[in-house]
Design a protein around this nucleic acid. Structure first.
Length: 889
RNA sequence: AGGCCCGUAGCUCAGUUGGUAGAGCACCACCUUGACACGGUGGGGGUCACUGGUUCGAGUCCAGCCGGGCCUACCA
């Protein structure tokens, strides 16, 4: 087996190992969670990606973080379930297939009809719908594929119908004729959330006059949408406005139709200081005006067709597009001498989130969820702490929205989605049922017509955490895994998804859907812009994994996931972590050269450890403790940096160098003992790193010697736990003195221009106890600092040479001349300055009586020690300067 | 309009309860030593945006201010 190492390539090639291991894990069933298990449950339901999606960095972030959590918990002895699935994504998918249909056959969906179109979407889904989840596999996602779900599959359909019917029966779903946001291009209603407000659009405020119906005079109003005047059914003024008070109750004449329109007083809507203080009222096309209309019993006159053209109510303007009509109305008003000028005006244009079209408030019959009764428990659950947000600042965002929530328009005039389970009889009675009914529940009529609309995609997504586990059946899976442990998602869908799941979960399950909501930051492009499908600025993570490996990408994303800050992805960083994987690979190559010394049938023998063995074991346990603590707190960046720091800078930089003398020149027993420590620490580190870098860790782990009863894969091996007895070890810490001394000798060698390969002698001076401790350990210096002999002061003390000072050790290297005297003097001067300044600060503090009186004793003691230490170092620096003839005497 | 976040080394960013400013990359010098040049060793580099306040002590808490970003909101 040891000879295998000779064939290991010097550089790690991720592409060659990654897919191989994924297949192995999947086929071995390691991803599977169990409905019945003695282990405690841990569950995450994946945020189901749209079937239209292809992998982008946003996915890569959540896949990474959720996989890190799942692998960590699975290794930590949990029955860990990470449940995969996809979302049918109503509008997005329909649009995509429509475009495809138009491009390939030149037909619209109306040309082929509903049934054929829906079948076509299914065909598209069967062909491409699995693409996104396959891409997740390339990132190493340890999802339980046997449980994969789709929001439109048969079981999910049943859950959606069940939820709808129950809410209807409870009076929490109703149908109403109301103003909703309407996208004229997609020809569907939208919820408030699906409308983006395009801040700062430059528009204009057009003013025109309504002539009074009786007598002379006019009233001037202002609007950003002049065409809506075709639907005006009132003019409103403030009741206290002196300018208009005498006109309240009078009428104006509509300039196009001659109709008489009332002037009403409305203190809620009208701000007398804005514009002319008079407001035209279009109840059917403006949310404010709609309220005014209700307050004053005004006619709601709809002037628009579903496609955004004007309808017959617009008279001569009928058939025009709304923007065309806007121009025409302005011209007509100008013709009649009623235009009163325009002013530039900045407004927030409401646009369809999907297609960017300017949406219109539109009066139509839609289905709504009465949301307040659902929101109340969802607010209370967070107040009680049943669900916790991390970072907790998002609690405010959630609460603010929930407390000011509006009823949710859930019907969409689409074909792709869950068709609303409601039927109408010829008399217009509504029958809502789980299965297609035979007859009207009110009048018994047998001619029934199902509602044409489908449900908002987010309605089904809201059921995700329990519908995926079998609800409405009372399944074992539900019992075991609900509530889920963690919801991990982006903060951009707190309202769309998190809030809806909270409400639905509490309502239907009586329990919160998840205990913790971890909200990760957004990945942005190099300019800091949000990546989105519509903008087309997505970076393909697969390109990155191909070049650097999935491990490197995962580690990067985890390392950059600091709570609350967005990620601006840097490929240099990814390259850096590829180097990290390579570093570990090579550390393993080194270890494997010595694994023939290891006998796994024997227990480790701490009593035979060297100082270095003991030191690295302590360091290892501290790294484990810190990493686990970071994971528990969802501090992914801290976890990664701790593992990185340990493996690279403690294990590779120090321990591997420290262990070499024993491995090369030790007794057989020493070789065996230290090779075992080398193996054990490396093996443990791999398990520690595994959730972040699953592939390279498995590749190496499989090559290391293992005990007979070890599991067949690192991914089901136990996660490291810190040994409390190893965390505090004064003996191990004392070894740091030696480490720092090595560094100081190296530094002095550079200052003295000692050639890299040359061995030197070192004389040292310290207190008696330290001297004795060091004297028995100077052997470490040979290899690490190229010191052929290190002797205490008693055996020699060279004068007129620069000296070094560290941790109470004073040491000198006897050398004839200093080559780079200028540089050394400059460096010493700088150090002197720095030390003097620092010392002054500390001494200032120590001479401040208030500091001495009020600061905690340990802080004062620390300062005293520091002051002493710095004083000694400063004296040393000055001594060196004096020796070089630069001192002040 | 309201709310939230950010401004720390050339770049990207860490900095838990206030107690001598850190990492990665980049940069400089030296080194192909028997795991690794995707490497090793040693270095340089910051008045923590700004102004006040609280405190023995503030990158860290408070107030204000400048700059950047995000989210909610029906101002015609």
């Amino acid at each position: 087996m040891a000879s295998e190492n000779e064939t290991l390539p010097k550089a790690y090639e991720p592409a060659q190992v990654e897919s191989r291991w994924y297949t192995f894990w999947k086929e071995s069933g390691f991803f599977a969670a169990h409905d019945e298990s003695d282990k405690p449950p841990f569950s995450i339901a994946i945020p189901p990606p749209n079937i239209t999606g292809s992998l982008h960095m946003g996915h890569a972030v959540f896949v990474t973080l959720q996989d890190v959590l799942t692998r960590w918990k699975r290794m930590s002895g949990y029955n860990a379930l990470w449940l995969p699935g996809t979302d049918h994504a109503g509008i997005a998918t329909q649009m995509l297939v429509e475009r495809d249909l138009m491009e390939k056959e030149g037909k619209s969906r109306h040309d082929i009809g509903r049934e054929a179109f829906v079948e076509r979407v299914w065909a598209w889904k069967r062909k491409y719908g699995g693409r996104i989840t396959e891409q997740f596999q390339q990132l190493g996602a340890s999802l339980d594929w046997a449980r994969e779900r789709f929001t439109l599959d048969e079981e999910f359909n049943r859950a959606v119908r069940e939820a709808f019917v129950r809410l209807w029966e409870e009076g929490l779903i109703y149908r109403a004729n109301r103003l909703i946001n309407w996208c004229p291009k997609d020809r569907t209603a939208l919820s408030d959330l699906e409308v983006d407000h395009d801040e700062g659009a430059q528009g204009e405020l057009f003013e025109f006059a309504y002539p009074l119906a009786e007598g002379e005079g006019e009233i001037v109003v202002a609007t950003t949408r002049p065409e809506t005047m075709l639907g005006d059914t009132a003019v409103a003024v403030h009741p206290d406005d002196e300018r208009y008070r005498h006109l309240i109750g009078k009428e104006v004449r509509h300039p196009f139709t001659g109709e008489r329109i009332p002037i009403v007083a409305d203190s809620i809507l009208v701000d007398p200081s804005f514009g002319t203080g008079a407001v035209k009222i279009t109840p059917a096309h403006d949310f404010n005006d709609f309220e005014v209309g209700k307050r004053h019993g005004l006619e709601m006159r709809n002037i628009l067709n579903p496609d955004g053209t004007l309808n017959e109510a617009a008279g001569p303007f009928a058939g025009m597009d709304r923007f065309e009509a806007r121009k025409a109305v302005k011209e007509k008003l100008a013709e009649l001498g009623l235009a009163r000028g325009t002013k530039p005006h900045v407004l927030a244009l409401a646009r369809c989130q999907r297609c960017g079209t300017v949406v219109e408030p539109y009066l139509s019959s839609q289905w709504f969820v009465k949301i307040a009764p659902l929101a109340k428990p969802a607010i209370e659950a967070v107040e009680k702490g049943d669900t916790v947000f991390v970072p907790e600042t998002w609690t405010n965002t959630y609460m603010a929205w929930m407390r000011d929530i509006h009823d949710w328009c859930i019907s969409r005039q689409l074909w792709w989605g869950h068709r609303i389970p409601a039927w109408y009889c010829p008399d217009g009675h509504i029958t809502v049922a789980r299965e297609t009914p035979e007859s009207c529940s009110t009048c018994g009529a047998r001619e029934l017509r199902q509602d044409e609309d489908v449900l908002d995609t987010w309605f089904s997504s809201g059921l995700w955490p329990f519908a995926t586990l079998g609800w409405p059946e009372k399944t074992k899976a539900l019992e075991t895994f609900y509530p889920t442990s963690v919801l991990e998602t982006g903060y951009d869908i707190i309202f769309f998804w998190v809030a809806r799941m909270m409400m639905m979960g509490l309502h239907f399950m009586g329990q919160v859907p998840f205990r913790t909501v971890y909200l990760h930051a957004m990945v942005r492009d190099e300019k800091g812009d949000k990546m989105s499908k519509t903008k087309g600025n997505v970076i393909d993570p697969l390109d990155v994994t191909e070049k650097y490996g999935a491990d490197a990408l995962r580690f990067t994303l985890a390392a950059m996931t600091a709570q609350g800050r967005d990620i601006k992805l840097s490929l240099e960083r990814v390259a850096g972590y590829k180097a990290f994987a390579n570093k570990i690979w090579n550390a393993a190559r080194f270890a494997l050269l010595h694994m023939d010394q290891v006998d796994m049938s024997r227990a480790p023998e701490p009593e035979k450890w060297s100082d270095a063995d003991r030191w690295i074991v302590t360091r290892y346990h501290r790294a484990v403790a810190d990493t686990v603590a970071a994971l528990q707190a969802f501090k992914f960046n801290e976890a990664t940096s701790r593992v990185y720091q340990f493996l690279w800078h403690e294990f590779c930089d120090w321990y591997i160098e420290l262990v070499k003398p024993r491995l090369y020149d030790g007794t057989p027993e020493e070789k065996a003992t230290s090779a075992r420590v080398l193996r054990d620490v490396l093996e443990g580190s791999l398990r520690l790193l595994h959730p972040f870098m699953p592939f390279v860790t498995e590749e190496i782990w499989q090559k290391l010697p293992r005990a007979k009863d070890d599991p067949p894969s690192i991914m089901i091996a136990p996660y490291p736990t810190p040994d409390p007895d190893r965390l505090e070890d004064a003996e191990a810490d004392r070894f740091d003195t030696l480490v720092e001394w090595v560094q100081a000798i190296r530094s002095l060698r550079v200052d003295l221009s000692v050639p890299e390969g040359a061995e030197v002698e070192v004389f040292f001076d310290a207190d008696e106890e330290t001297t004795a401790w060091l004297a028995s350990r100077v052997g470490w210096l040979r290899r690490l600092a190229k010191v052929k002999r290190a002797a205490p002061r008693a055996e020699g003390w060279p004068e007129k040479v620069p000296s070094g000072f560290v941790r109470g050790i004073d040491f000198r290297i006897p050398l004839e001349g200093v080559v780079n005297r200028e540089e050394l003097v400059a460096k010493l001067r700088k150090e002197e300055e720095k030390l003097a300044a620092e010392l002054e600060k500390i001494q200032g503090r120590l001479s401040n009586e208030r500091f001495l009186a009020r600061a905690p004793a340990d802080v004062v003691a620390k300062d005293r020690a520091l002051s002493e230490e710095m004083g000694a170092r400063l004296a040393k620096v000055r001594e060196n300067l004096a020796m070089l003839g630069e001192g002040e005497g």
